[in-house]
Write a protein that binds this DNA or RNA. Structure first.
Lengths: 186, 186
DNA sequence: TAGCGTGGAGAACGCCCGTTCCCGTCGACG
DNA sequence: CGTCGACGGGAACGGGCGTTCTCCACGCTA
């Protein structure tokens, strides 16, 4: 195979890593499998990320950017400030319905390695704080009391977990319905 | 050391397994460490559970019984049907504050091995369904609409996840406040 | 008291995995 | 056209872990 430039090599590597890590968990996936999936020589893999933990970190980082961008894009399609909040839960529903959905990558990663890898713990906390911050922004834009933000976040997190474990998209609609009540009550 | 009877050997084994698995994750803990913690010969360990996966299953099973019993005991102290629902969130708060709290064992286990071990996936689903069933019972006892149960469950799950990752007990109070609004709105 | 079996302690085995190293080949440059 | 460097492919290494096996001390029985 012709030599790949660094950028596409990195993309392929992260693509393969993300697919495998998300589907099966981090420790269950070996570096060899990732390099096969990426079609890269092991040497190249370790030139890009000198250790597995750094590849894991990069995987979570890139996914964080993309995940929040997809959420924001879905919310952006709605104008009314209150409806924008509910759009978060609608988007969760479309996410849950995607083939291969297996819960939240950061919740899963934290459960697996949060106690043992600082990098994973940091990524999980950063992602969850960023999500909470985004929701808080939506709540502020709608002129609603700040205390509502964390409550809506709990509904969303609970929906992710429950949908992941039970393998159903129902929690998205349930969380949305609960969110409507919370909005009305404020 | 004097030979231990089967019952206490099993107890010691499960005690050691639970402490280590919960604190550090399942794959990060070796059988050798567990046998050291239990003070048991490896032979005895494998006589009790012929493979690690079965020990993991037993760990989750026993923890499920105890966890739900603790929750139920806390709820039992409250008489008013609506207050009993809120007592669930109060108990979550005392759980979050316990030293060594690191989130929900089934959520963590599912994130780590749910895709790779049938036994862990089954345990997680069974536990979450049992919890949801318990909450549904409380909702029914209070004469509230059945649709409220899953919504309260989402708040609780979200609180567990968030408290685990962020290392704070605040989600318990936030979830309780949200639950009050949901109760009032029904 | 001699033999036997049970159970404790830990060494040993085989496998897997993260990481490193070697070799063949192909393109660039003089 | 010859040489050198870089890169792809994969073997090799070292360590860790789940699982099994060996050895030895102790207590029971005839």
């Amino acid at each position: 195979m012709a030599p790949l430039d660094t950028a596409t090599a990195r993309t392929r590597l992260l693509d393969a890593a993300e697919e495998l890590f998300y589907a099966r968990g981090i420790q269950s996936v070996g570096m060899d499998e990732i390099r096969t999936g990426a079609g890269l020589p092991l040497k190249r893999v370790y030139a890009l990320y000198p250790a597995k933990e750094q590849l894991v970190e990069a995987y979570l980082q890139r996914r964080d950017v993309r995940w929040r961008a997809r959420l924001a894009a879905a919310v952006e399609e709605v104008a009314d400030p209150r409806e924008r909040i509910l759009a978060v839960f609608d988007w969760l529903g479309t996410w849950f319905r995607e083939p291969g959905f297996r819960g939240c990558a950061w919740i899963n990663g934290f459960g697996e390695l949060g106690a043992v890898s600082d990098a994973v713990g940091r990524q999980a906390r950063a992602h969850k704080r960023a999500f909470a911050g985004y929701v808080a922004g939506l709540v502020g834009d709608a002129g609603l009391p700040a205390g509502l933000g964390p409550q809506l976040v709990l509904l969303a997190e609970g929906a992710m977990v429950t949908a992941g474990i039970l393998g159903t998209d129902a929690p998205a609609a349930e969380a949305r319905a609960a969110a409507e009540v919370l909005l009305r009550g404020s």
